[in-house]
């Protein structure tokens, strides 16, 4: 028993040494192809060069990106994030893992923004298929994805907008018992659900897991977003009743407000992951296009 353990340890050490050697060769070649810029405090590398180098060194794309950032080499795809996002913050984003629940109206735009911005790892969950009534607002819904899984469309989209992201796609409607296991592996949860029924459960389980929740909810031309820290104030008063009771069932959802609230949620996620001050903790951001009202309400 003890010799098997020792063998395992030696083998794990050997593998660690091999990885370390592989990484130092990778970094040495990366530093040769990286270009320095006078106006930036870091070097840059094109995404295509970084991808080729990762393949030739048998390193995953996400690992290659992480190693580049750690060595102050920024993939050029993020150059226009600077200086709103510093190199250190870009590195934090690349190390971050989020659970995004719902890939419909809000979730599609949130994924688009966070994938492009450089969040490193996503768990995506949705058990729904696209239908024609989604096409007015859901960016992942197209004539090609009708009747197809929303979460699969999301995974496909993420692959083509940012191959450095890691993605686990779960094609099912999550239940309470699914959540603790998933939340062990993330830094933050995004509520992009449709309907009020599951929101309270997601809120409770996120709080139990000790994670921040960034939530958004819309109806017609009215939308709201909020950040909830464990034990903090939350907007669950908006979610009283059964799923059919939400105003969205009578008013529908306009693309204008859906994309705006998704942007507010994505901005908040970036702030939290880069350790900036949350702007919506204990508060609710309100936007209404009918009356052109924009406000930050205290819960």
């Amino acid at each position: 028993m003890s010799s098997r353990k020792t063998t395992g340890l030696v083998s794990s050490r050997q593998s660690g040494v091999a990885d370390s050697l592989k990484h130092s060769l990778f970094i040495s070649e990366l530093e040769k192809i990286a270009r320095s810029h006078q106006q930036f405090p870091f070097s840059c590398v094109s995404s295509s060069s970084l991808l080729r180098l990762a393949i030739s060194h048998n390193i995953t794309f996400s690992r290659a990106q992480y190693l580049a950032l750690k060595h102050k080499i920024l993939p050029e795809r993020y150059i226009r994030n600077f200086s709103s996002i510093s190199l250190a913050e870009q590195t934090r984003l690349a190390e971050s893992r989020i659970l995004l629940v719902g890939l419909g109206g809000l979730g599609g735009y949130i994924l688009e923004i966070l994938g492009r911005s450089g969040v490193g790892s996503f768990i995506l969950a949705d058990g729904d298929y696209f239908e024609e009534s989604n096409l007015n607002r859901q960016i992942l819904g197209t004539v090609d994805t009708l009747e197809k899984s929303k979460v699969e469309a999301a995974r496909t989209r993420l692959e083509i907008i940012n191959p450095f992201c890691r993605c686990q796609a779960i094609f099912s409607f999550l239940t309470r018992k699914d959540l603790p296991g998933l939340m062990e592996n993330v830094d933050l949860v995004v509520d992009a659900l449709g309907g009020i029924e599951f929101r309270q459960i997601l809120l409770e389980e996120t709080s139990r897991a000790g994670l921040p929740l960034v939530t958004g909810f819309v109806a017609g031309t009215t939308g709201l977003a909020s950040t909830v820290y464990p034990g903090g104030k939350n907007p669950s008063a908006f979610w009283q009743g059964r799923s059919g009771d939400g105003a969205e069932n009578r008013l529908g959802n306009m693309a204008t407000i859906v994309s705006l609230i998704a942007s507010v949620q994505a901005a908040e996620v970036i702030k939290i992951l880069t350790e900036q001050q949350s702007g919506m903790a204990g508060k609710v951001f309100l936007a209404d296009f009918e009356s052109l009202t924009f406000d930050l309400l205290e819960m």
Partner: peptide
Amino acid sequence: VGIFPAIGGG
């Protein structure tokens, strides 16, 4: 005074 119904669309 701001008055809201249940809202939960996404």
